[in-house]
Amino acid sequence: MPIWLLNTLEVSINGLMTGVLYSLVALGFVLIFKSSGVFNYAQGVMALFAAQSLVGIQTGQVPFAHLINAITGLHVSRFGFDVPSILAIILTTLVMVVFAWVVVRVIMVRLVNQEPIILFMATIGLAYFMEGFGDLMWGAELKSLDVGLPSGGSFWIEDVTAQWAREGETYWGMYVDTLDIWATVIAVFLVAGLTIFAQYTKAGTAMRAVADDHQAALSVGISLNRIWIMVWSIAGFVALVAGIMWGAKSGVQFSLSLIALKALPVLMLGGFTSIPGAIVGGLIIGMGEKLFEFAIGAPFLGGATENWFAYVLALLFLVFRPQGLFGDKIIERV
């Protein structure tokens, strides 16, 4: 293979894997939007909060240490033991379930049947509250997250692909991060699990029913609260997975919550109501922005196109296919 083709391939693969991470964030949005009609602005902050909690639990941090110290005059910061990763992940999942319960009980229940914009504003409030709450609980400093997933370039892939170059050309092989590979595998399992859950289980069917028509779901005896708590918990878990992946890559700090902004164009592309849409949308955006940067952006436009490419693509979609690639068609009988 010629070098340019190999390079393009490498960029595409890395783009796809970044796309998987976008998809994970978008997935959380879709779940909540589908089942409660709420565009959850706090999804990114949920990922940050989940990652903070995970690191905090893992390293045995005392929650609200600053607050406790300020009030009591003590100097506590750590319990002095580490929690194994698996246990920490389970505990963090529990934290997210409790969080879901509180959100539904305190916010959602009171805002049933309100305008979407009011619900949206409520989630903006929630996002800022959580950001502060997370910092208060676990401290605001940059933390590194390591749950034992391998990271760094895969030598095996590098070695194998180095052979693909034509005779006489120097090619060092492709750089593919093993963390990205793991993220992809985990995302595939997560999505498969969610799809099976939504399509074939009683709770999943109820979840889709709630997404279609709240009132009718209520009338057949489906408990909206329970479904919402379930959905917010799942979204919290997805946020945790996204938080682990992004946190492992770039550390746990405020900017982690901004990945939510990357999910927006993904949603416009894939459709706000479609789980496969979130996945495919993420892949297209991830690959698209890397390829565009590689082929057009860097050589001709002076680079840094990755920041806006996704939004331009999303705008095009809004013009020509507003419901996105896979979004629910609005069924209207005449």
């Binding site: 889709r208 009718a216 629910d328």
Partner: peptide, 15 residues
């Protein structure tokens, strides 16, 4: 008020 995106049988099952 049927669940439009669910099949007829899924609708019944929600009941």
């Amino acid at each position: 008020h049927c669940f439009e995106h669910l099949t007829v049988e899924e609708n019944l099952m929600t009941g």
